[in-house]
Nucleic acid binder design. Structure first.
Length: 299
DNA sequence: CGGCATACCTGCAAGC
DNA sequence: TGCTTGCAGGTATGCC
């Protein structure tokens, strides 16, 4: 998936075409993604006016005029496509016009401006839920999510407090959505590389104390929002399954500094290291063993 | 509770 | 060329 920058890029693509629109038709092409769709999902969406398209961590939060919110997660391979039909088209007509629907087109929303918003997700790790907007902090998938790495709460002392005392690796801690919500495997690797921190170190050893965070922690607290914002500015990143809402294949994959660069030279100025790959918690980690120092390992 | 492995699903690239 | 294998950005669950 799409990590935070990709979801934000999708949000920016969807908001101008969806906000203020009425959902006049819903084509549910299967009964579930990762989980079943909510009961009467299509019926509950039909006729609703879309107020706002927001984002929380990696979730899209679509506020509706009946005070419910449509929560959508793109999983590993979800993407949206926007296309235009005509006012007299029904959702089915759109599919006929285009010939056979795309193989993994699971949901089509038909908006009253004649726009079709199609959700495609080959691996079906995505999800869609309807939750009362007033209960989002008590009910549904947003419950328990950690702080937004681009939000005002994301400060060095807050980050130190979240990480201090933890024996798990800094890599695993940054991936834990209950602590910080929105980072994924790519941007954790990138942020640790920028900060010169080994992904193998324990989270607690990076943090220092809340009142006096270590220098490495302070570098990390800068690198995380920096790398996310750079990716958003670049249009979000895209690997093989992700695409922007207009169908262009995406964008940032050639500008990763460490992710996917095993065996290639480290890009830090004056560093002569070679990017290595390790496995942590079953996932690939890319790092430079020379400039990302490895003392206090978690092995 | 913390930390880790595993499962979910399909597509693709690499290797034989 | 065709088959098999491993790997992929996600979260949820269960086990110790």
């Amino acid at each position: 998936m799409p990590e935070l920058p990709e979801v934000e890029t999708v949000r920016r693509g969807l908001a101008p075409v969806m906000e203020g629109q009425t959902i006049v038709g819903v084509d549910l092409r299967r009964k579930d993604l990762r989980r079943p769709f909510p009961d009467n999902f299509a019926e509950r969406l039909k006729g609703r006016i879309i107020r706002k398209v927001d984002r929380r961590a990696k979730y899209l939060v679509v506020g509706l005029d009946d005070d419910n919110s449509l929560l959508m997660h793109l999983g590993m391979s979800g993407s949206f496509r926007i296309s235009s039909g005509s006012e007299t088209d029904a959702p089915g007509a759109f599919l006929h016009k285009r010939g056979a629907p795309g193989k993994h087109d699971h949901v089509v929303l038909w908006l009253d401006a004649g726009t079709f918003v199609t959700y495609n997700d080959p691996r079906r790790f995505g999800s869609m839920d309807l939750i009362a907007t007033g209960s989002l902090d008590r009910d549904g998938p947003l419950v328990g999510l950690g702080i937004e790495p681009l939000g005002p709460d994301f400060t060095p002392s807050r980050l130190a407090a979240l990480l201090s005392g933890r024996q798990t690796s800094i890599k695993a801690a940054l991936l834990d959505q209950r602590l910080i919500a929105g980072l994924g495997n790519i941007y954790v690797c990138e942020a640790l590389w920028r900060s010169g921190i080994s992904p193998l170190r324990s989270a607690g050893s990076v943090a220092g104390s809340t009142s006096r965070p270590f220098a490495a922690l302070r570098r990390l607290a800068v690198a995380i929002p920096d790398v996310l914002m750079a990716a958003i500015e670049a249009g979000g990143s895209s690997l093989r399954n992700h695409s922007q809402t207009d169908g262009r294949p995406g964008y940032f994959q050639h500008s990763f500094d460490v992710y996917g660069r095993e065996g290639l030279p480290c890009r830090k100025p004056r560093c002569r290291g070679t990017i290595a790959r390790a496995t942590q918690n079953g996932r690939s980690t890319f790092f430079c063993p020379v400039c990302q120092h490895s003392f206090q390992r978690v092995d």
